[in-house]
């Protein structure tokens, strides 16, 4: 470092590079680390040496057919209700921002209802729909409610509607975050409301929508376990079913937990990827994102700084003193 700067330091104060500074010592951090580590060792030992937990059972059942079936159902339920929930959320958000008072009210009521009641209760209500409406249909044509509402469809309905309510608030926030001038500029070009939304507003809203949506996915993944109360065949349903047959409840719950951890880890990694990809400039940029480019542009020495560099060898004050 000292070798690279001699020309610049000629008229400057002592080179900070030659100073040997003693960093601030954080003794508290060391103490805290030792305490935490000790507690962790105790905890791991308590679990590992617990004689009632059959570790070999956990190891051998992690790839049980029933467990893998449940895993597939959980993934399928998560993906389906997330996709439908996002689509529904965009729809509800657009209705919420419409000029039409009726549509606005319907949207607000939807969010109020499905966000304001517990998902668990919603799951139970959908599952027991046949109690209120034994048959569903219009006019003459109808089907038995119990044929239509299986545990899986009840779970899907409940999770989707709940997710749509939450997503609509996220999407609405994203849309409102887009500068009003963007909409005006698009309208002034003769673009219809649909085009403005699809081509100008939503792509820009995505930057705001994507991060919380990733969180929603992780949350939803875990929320699907609630459908075990109606025996929808998800991971937890299956784990409990297996565990109930031979008194390995706790072991099977740990098996389920391991799988939930695997899934949420994958989802979090996916979220990170998606966010990075979106920073790369939505669907339009090639190479670096416009955001990254902006940062690069900001950091690149501008015209003013170039001019400054030329004048730098003699600082203005010294120049004046010399005269």
């Amino acid at each position: 470092m000292t070798a690279s700067t001699p020309s610049r330091t000629a008229a400057a104060p002592p080179d900070p590079g030659t100073l040997k500074a003693v960093p601030v010592r954080h003794y508290g951090q060391w103490v805290a680390a030792v305490v935490c580590l000790a507690l962790l060792v105790l905890l791991v030992r308590a679990v590992a040496t617990n004689e009632t937990i059959q570790w070999d059972v956990i190891g051998s059942r992690i790839f049980f057919d029933a467990i893998l079936d449940g895993l597939v159902t959980t993934i399928w339920l998560t993906v389906a209700s997330m996709v439908l929930g996002v689509l529904g959320g965009v729809l509800v958000a657009v209705l919420r921002l419409s000029d039409n008072l009726l549509l606005r009210s319907i949207s607000a009521a939807f969010v109020w209802l499905f966000r304001g009641t517990p998902v668990l209760v919603q799951i139970l209500i959908w599952f027991n729909l046949a109690l209120f409406f034994p048959r569903l249909g219009f006019g003459g044509a109808s089907v038995s409610t119990n044929d239509l509402i299986t545990p899986f469809t009840a779970a899907l309905l409940a999770l989707t509607l709940n997710e749509a309510a939450y997503m609509s608030e996220i999407v609405r926030g994203g849309i409102l975050a887009v500068d009003g001038g963007q909409r005006e500029a698009a309208e002034a070009l003769g673009m219809t409301s649909g085009l403005v939304l699809r081509r100008i507003v939503l792509p820009q809203a995505m930057k705001v929508i994507i991060p919380p949506t990733g969180n929603e996915l992780v949350t939803l993944l875990k929320t699907t376990s609630l459908v075990a109360v109606i025996g929808a065949g998800d991971l937890l349903t299956q784990a409990q079913a297996v565990g109930a047959t031979d008194f390995t409840r706790l072991e099977m719950l740990i098996v389920a937990s391991i799988w939930y951890l695997v899934l949420t880890t994958i989802a979090s990694a996916g979220q990170a990827l998606l966010e990075r990809r979106f920073l790369r400039g939505s669907t339009h940029a090639r190479g670096r994102s416009w955001l990254l480019r902006r940062i690069a542009t900001d950091l690149r020495p501008g015209r003013n700084q170039d001019a400054g560099a030329v004048a730098a060898p003699v600082p203005p004050s010294e120049e004046r003193d010399a005269r």
Binding site: D179, Q182, A185, E187, G190, T192, Q204, W290
Partner: peptide, 20 residues
């Protein structure tokens, strides 16, 4: 919207679409 095709407008704050 159809009528606005005939009238171009330039804004104080440019309002270019930043994602394009």
């Amino acid at each position: 919207a159809h009528q606005r095709r005939n009238v171009g407008m330039v804004f104080q704050r440019f309002n270019l679409f930043p994602h394009m």
